[in-house]
Design a protein around this nucleic acid. Structure first.
Lengths: 200, 200
DNA sequence: TACATTTGCTTAACACTGTTAAATGATTTA
DNA sequence: TAAATCATTTAACAGTGTTAAGCAAATGTA
């Protein structure tokens, strides 16, 4: 009867090997190059067995972006925990956000990109997609001494932060950006500017 | 011999009918739904004749985005010409940029979206892609009293503008945005803030 | 041990995609 | 009228996501 466990473990293994393969292909060749048969090739099966683990291709993409949100959230918490001052927390968190985007370009596109095809509708329904918001707006609330996390002012400030950082990121992912120096300067200026504007 | 002209005119007509059809499909069903056979269906031909007018599907997408840049540039010039004060020009131009994005969501995605598939590499090589930059940075230069349009400071300011506006736009195109009121407020605050920061 | 059933996986197929080459039929040229 | 060019279509190829049918090995049952 312990063989049941072994089999379940094996199943879990091939499930994650599917995700590994998909991630590898996406990172190496881009979203467009991802195909079910290519995944099957990597995991040394044929395409139809993938459907025993995922409903369809979109479900795989969705799971990859879900993992992306979890990873981003983890990295945000990490740097946040190293600072106690909420203003500092905000600065290091947005820098971490920036770094995450470039270290995981393709995944970032899946998470936040205005994507042409893809699981765009679904992504918004992922509960994990709100993790970054939770983590960051907590610091905004602390800095502004506001308890109600759903208050409109926190919302506004969060979107201001996000807009400029995401805007800079996507412009650079498009290769329309400037030198790294200019970008980092724009980023730092913007972040510190907003932080100053909300510091009591 | 005048029939040569008529034929050329007809050719030009079906060329633009291809673009019309493509644009219509993209606007109605999104980039993903665009296929050569669907275009052929609309223009009442079969798919292969499209290749007499465009090298491939990508070339059609590229032409659509090219037209997008021209349209955006036109709208920017339009509102710019209605104001003489460079600060006012910047404000109305970025508002026009904002409006263009939502009036032409799909095209905007093709022009500036971090797109999954698409003619991403090519878009950067379109000379028309620099028109918005030319038009807007002229006002920035005038406001800052700088003649050299390639100066790093103009570049930086332009990217600051662009980042926040594009960031706000793409977040809203993703349906991750807020109420229209909050967005407009964030947008106006950001624009006037940057304008103030560069006004001598 | 012998048969029945379930499981894991593959092959084959369908409907679609972009794209190219060959065939067809009409129009112009000589 | 015959030849040549042109516009257009049909057929085909290689690829896509996805589903259904088949097979063969492992498992359960008598």
């Amino acid at each position: 009867m312990a063989s049941k466990d072994r089999i379940l473990r094996l199943k879990e293994e091939t499930r994650s090997s599917i995700l590994d393969a998909a991630l590898r292909i996406v990172k190496e060749e881009g979203w467009q190059a991802l195909s079910m048969r290519k995944i099957a090739d990597v995991i040394e099966y044929t395409a139809p067995i993938i459907y025993e683990y995922f409903a369809n291709k979109e479900a795989i993409l969705l799971e990859l972006t879900r993992m992306g949100y979890l990873k981003l959230a983890k990295e945000l918490e990490e740097v946040k925990s190293q600072n106690t001052n909420p203003a500092d927390q905000l600065e290091v968190m947005w820098l971490a956000y920036w770094n995450f985007a470039f270290a995981n370009k393709e995944i970032y596109q899946g998470m936040f990109g205005i994507t042409t095809s893809c699981a765009c509708d679904m992504v918004n329904k992922l509960p994990e997609a709100e993790l970054p918001w939770d983590i960051i707006s907590a610091s905004i609330g602390e800095l502004m001494k506001i308890d109600d996390m759903d208050s409109e002012i926190i919302c506004t400030k969060y979107y201001t932060f996000w807009s400029i950082v995401h805007g800079l990121v996507s412009i650079n992912l498009l290769d329309r950006g400037n030198s790294d120096d200019i970008n980092r300067q724009v980023l730092r200026d913007a972040i510190t500017g907003i932080i100053r504007s909300i510091t009591p």
